[in-house]
Amino acid sequence: MENQDKYTLDVLKYLNDDETFQLLKKRWGYEKNTKLIVMGQIERKDKESSIHRLTNLKNIEEIPLRYPLENYNGYHNIYIGLTLSEDFKNGQWVQANLKLAPNKEREKQLNPFELNVQISSLMKLDEIPIKVIESGIHNNFIENWIVEHLAEKNTEEIKENNKSILADQEILLKRQNKLENQLKGLEEREITFIEKLEKHQEKIESCTLELKTIKQNPK
């Protein structure tokens, strides 16, 4: 927020991390027990660097956010990290949850409010279609468009999920057929074994009978 009270380093040095974080949230219009979720654009430091930052910070009401620090000449952006998923492009608008940067980094930047992005919280923000903007409606949270957009997005996700389910079903069906063939083979081997066993049993009985006959009629 541009027009807000600013604090000096002399005042902030007496606050612990939680007090500092809560003070910043309050100045930026966030309730104590809510997450510090902001909107911003991904920016790569330069072509040779892998450092990514979040710039053009805004709160959920789209009000620009700046560090409320007196005589601060540093950047009003947020460190994201050295590596970033290919899903996120330079200049893309995203939503992110913020946290205090490590104490050493805040001391180095002479900014007790210095923040970092929680990487796992990064979420792409889809732009409002140009046809909606041209219609003269400028509210970025247009209910009907959001419903239509989410319906489209969910339909695509459902299609992808269905493809995945069908692929899984095909794999399971192949496994089932393989197991059935293996079971059939085992059953055939069992039948063959039983038949052989029965033949051997018949031979044994025949030999036993022949032996008795010999004993009863010795020459």
Rank of each mutant, 00 (worst) to 15 (best):
Y7C: 05
T8E: 13
L9Y: 07
K13E: 13
K13W: 06
D17E: 11
D17R: 08
F21S: 03
F21H: 05
Q22M: 08
R27I: 02
I37N: 06
I37C: 08
G40R: 02
Q41I: 01
I42Y: 04
E43R: 08
N56I: 00
K58E: 15
N59R: 10
N59I: 06
I60C: 09
P64Y: 07
L65Q: 01
P68Y: 02
P68W: 01
N71Q: 15
N73K: 14
Y75H: 13
N77V: 03
I78C: 02
G91D: 12
Q92I: 02
W93T: 14
W93F: 13
N97S: 14
P112R: 02
E114D: 13
L115W: 00
L115P: 03
V117N: 03
V117H: 05
S121V: 06
S121I: 08
K124Q: 12
L125Q: 10
D126W: 10
I130D: 14
N140H: 15
I142V: 10
H149V: 00
A151W: 07
A151R: 09
E152F: 07
N154S: 12
T155V: 04
E156D: 15
N161Y: 11
S164N: 14
D168Y: 06
Q182F: 06
R189C: 07
E190P: 00
E190S: 14
T192W: 01
I194T: 05
H200A: 11
S206H: 15
L209C: 01
E210W: 09
K212G: 01
I214A: 12
K215T: 05
P218H: 09
